[in-house]
Structures are given as structure tokens and as C-alpha cells.
């Protein structure tokens, strides 16, 4: 498969769109828009999985697609929206790193992942797989970047989830990847999400803020305010 053949083109396009949504996540300033972008990313991921299932003739990928769509595009964004409304958060994203610098860092990270993946997989895998790996690694790195560049717990949670999107993207691109691995990955990260969710509520109760920067004061080393 290479350029010009439809399966490749569509898979390439969807992978790129998932990466683009990672950039949108970093660009947005309002929490609601961040959640919306995350939902779109989930839907795109589901579409990518669906297309891979169709192209590779692997029906189990349809399950992945369904799971991704249900969880990433519908349930989690919905839950986050409800949390947002209930908590009455002021809705701009608090950034630890400005939008411009974090986008610049994101570009550098994409460049880095291209530089890493291409030589590392030279002559070993199909073109599509190699490209998918590069895109997926970029999405993972951008997720991590988002966790660092944002101070709000909800944004950090979304960063983590989009990181997991990257993992799924990597998994669906490899031919013959068994479903088990994906389910376990997904479950693991969902667990993490749960933990993070509880963490959000606890934080809210105890500290009346979602700024994780305030946690530093709770370590017992310094003076409590």
C-alpha cells in the first residue's frame, strides 16, 4: 500500500486528523472547547479503528472502534461536561506554559518522533505501519506535553486520555494485534481516568481548587497557608 491507493490514503488522513486534534487540544483556551476537541479526537480514533478493521479484514477492530466511540467520543466528554457544570469551574484553561510556546514544543516533539521512528523501523514494517507509529508516538508525546503544560486537573486528565488515544492508534495500525492487548490497555487507562476523577473531586473538596500546583503546599515540608 502506498499513496494513491484508497485504504492507505484514508488511514493516513485519519491518523493525521487525530494528531491535528492533539494540536487543537493544546491551542484551545476554554475548557468546554478542550472537551469538545477531545470528543472529536475520540470519534476520529474510532473511525480510524473502523477503517483499519475494514482494510485489514480484522473484525475485532470493529469492537475497538465501538469501544473508542462510546467511551471517548460520548461518555467521557459527557461526564466531563457534567463535572464542569457541577463544579462551576471558571472555564478558561490555566496554562503553565503559554499557548504559543507549547505549540512550538509540540512541533519539536513531532519532529523528534519522526526522527526516531523512521530510522528505527527502516526496512522492517509496512509503510503504513511505520507512519502510523510516528503519528501515534507524536500523539502520545503531545498528551504528555498537555499534562505538563496545563495546570487544571481536568485538562491534565484530558491530556492523559489523549495519550491513551495515541497508544490505541499505535495498536490498531499493527496488523494482527490481538484484541486482548487493546482491551487491557483501554481498561488500564480507564482505571487511571477513574483515579484521576476521584482525585479531582477530592481535590475540590479539600482544597477548593483544581490547581495541582497547590498540592505542593500539602507535602508537609513547608508551612501550610
Amino acid at each position: 500500500m502506498s499513496f494513491g491507493s484508497l485504504p492507505y490514503d484514508i488511514a493516513h488522513l485519519l491518523g493525521g486528523a487525530v494528531l491535528l486534534m492533539s494540536f487543537v487540544l493544546l491551542y484551545q483556551r476554554r475548557l468546554e472547547a478542550v472537551i469538545g476537541a477531545f470528543a472529536v479526537q475520540g470519534a476520529l480514533l474510532a473511525a480510524a479503528a473502523f477503517w483499519q478493521g475494514f482494510a485489514q479484514g480484522a473484525p475485532h477492530l470493529y469492537v475497538t472502534a465501538l469501544l473508542a466511540f462510546g467511551a471517548k467520543a460520548l461518555l467521557i466528554p459527557l461526564a466531563l461536561r457534567i463535572a464542569l457544570r457541577r463544579l462551576g469551574l471558571h472555564r478558561t484553561v490555566e496554562t503553565a506554559l503559554g499557548v504559543g510556546p507549547s505549540l512550538l514544543a509540540a512541533i519539536a516533539l513531532v519532529g523528534l518522533s519522526v526522527l526516531v521512528v523512521l530510522p528505527a523501523t527502516a526496512g522492517q514494517a509496512q509503510a503504513l505501519t511505520r507512519e502510523n507509529l510516528a503519528l501515534a508516538l507524536s500523539v502520545v508525546l503531545l498528551g504528555m506535553l498537555m499534562m505538563i503544560a496545563r495546570r487544571n486537573a481536568i485538562s491534565q486528565l484530558i491530556g492523559l486520555l489523549s495519550l491513551e488515544n495515541g497508544l490505541i492508534l499505535a495498536a490498531i495500525g499493527v496488523q494482527g494485534m490481538p484484541l486482548v492487548v487493546e482491551l487491557s490497555t483501554a481498561a488500564l487507562v480507564l482505571m487511571l481516568a477513574l483515579v484521576a476523577g476521584i482525585f479531582v473531586f477530592l481535590l475540590r473538596d479539600r482544597l477548593a481548587t483544581l490547581d495541582t500546583g497547590d498540592l505542593a503546599r500539602q507535602r508537609g515540608e513547608g508551612e501550610a497557608p
Binding site: F23, L104, V110
Partner: peptide
């Protein structure tokens, strides 16, 4: 506006990077 245009600039940069990615694969 600079942020908006800066994002366009970065997307152009990203496009060129991904193009290297795909041209190197072929």
C-alpha cells in the same frame, strides 16, 4: 491574532514534516 496565525505557521511546519515522513516511506 498572532496566536491564530502562529498556529497556521506551525501547521504549515507540521505539514512539511509529515511530508518528509511520507516521502521517506515510499
Amino acid at each position: 491574532v498572532p496566536e491564530f496565525l502562529g498556529t497556521a505557521l506551525l501547521l504549515g511546519l507540521l505539514g512539511a514534516l509529515l511530508l518528509f515522513l511520507s516521502t521517506r516511506l515510499a
